[in-house]
């Protein structure tokens, strides 16, 4: 890579970090554009690591005293009920969009979510994973109740070194396939799952594709995997 190109990419990365993606998207040359985007992604990751290590207690000191009036939002309401019944299980403060839980007694909480008559979340709508960068993987569950017609979202964050979450496939039977797929794509490990193997990719595939730093393998059983064929680009 020539010196001018490096300087240009550094400028574009500066602009991209400030939130302006137009200069990068306007580049005609495909190779240069992809190099710029890769450099931007790397810079963003580095910036996030630096920000996470900044002290978090500053934020806490600024927060106003907690609002004790009950809110109508299901995530807030049920998050409070979960905290009352299973103290210490919330991983973050209550908010309107989701309930953050710790993975420790997730199985008991899940059983209670389904069996408690006023909640009765009998349908696990969607279960997915997210790679948040910073060595953190998060599993997200969307629940819905057919009887009461309310829904919540639950998120459980784990680290890459120990991605263990209790499995809930015995409570909602669709959890069986959803969890196998999340394991296949992200590399979580669902403790207690009776049939823990890959779902979509072949059994001998290496790596977990939906992680942000996934590098595709070179060959699979002798067949070349990546996109380069002779005469392309």
């Amino acid at each position: 890579m020539s010196a001018d190109q490096e300087k240009l990419i550094a400028e574009l990365v500066e602009k991209g970090l400030a939130g302006d993606m137009d200069p990068i998207n306007a580049i005609e040359d495909r190779v240069l554009r992809s190099k710029a985007k890769a450099a931007l992604a790397k810079a963003k990751r580095a910036a996030k690591v630096a920000a996470a290590s900044a002290p978090a207690d500053e934020k806490l000191a600024e927060e106003p005293p907690a609002d004790t009036t009950p809110s109508d939002n299901p995530n807030q309401k049920f998050g409070k009920m979960i905290e009352d019944k299973f103290p210490g299980s919330l991983g973050a403060d209550l908010n309107d969009t989701h309930i953050q839980l710790k993975p420790d007694n997730w199985f008991d909480i899940a059983t209670w979510l389904k069996s408690e008559p006023s909640l009765h979340f009998d349908s696990l709508q969607c279960q997915t994973g997210m790679d948040l960068g910073d060595n953190i993987l998060e599993a997200r569950y969307n629940f819905h109740s057919m009887t009461h017609d309310h829904k919540i979202e639950i998120r459980i964050a784990v680290t890459r070194d120990k991605p263990n979450i209790p499995s809930i496939e015995q409570i909602w039977r669709i959890g069986d396939w959803f969890e196998r797929e999340t394991y296949d794509m992200f590399g979580f490990h669902f403790d207690g799952h009776r049939d823990h193997r890959r779902m979509l990719l072949p059994e001998d595939w290496e790596g977990y594709p939906l992680r942000k730093d996934y590098e595709v393998q070179e060959t699979y059983h002798g067949i070349v995997v990546p996109k380069v064929k002779e005469g392309w680009e």
């Binding site: 979509l200 595709v216 067949i223």
Partner: peptide, 12 residues
């Protein structure tokens, strides 16, 4: 481009 599991042409 990004299909890691796709065979790029059956003539392989």
């Amino acid at each position: 481009q990004h299909g890691y599991h796709v065979l790029k042409g059956v003539d392989i």
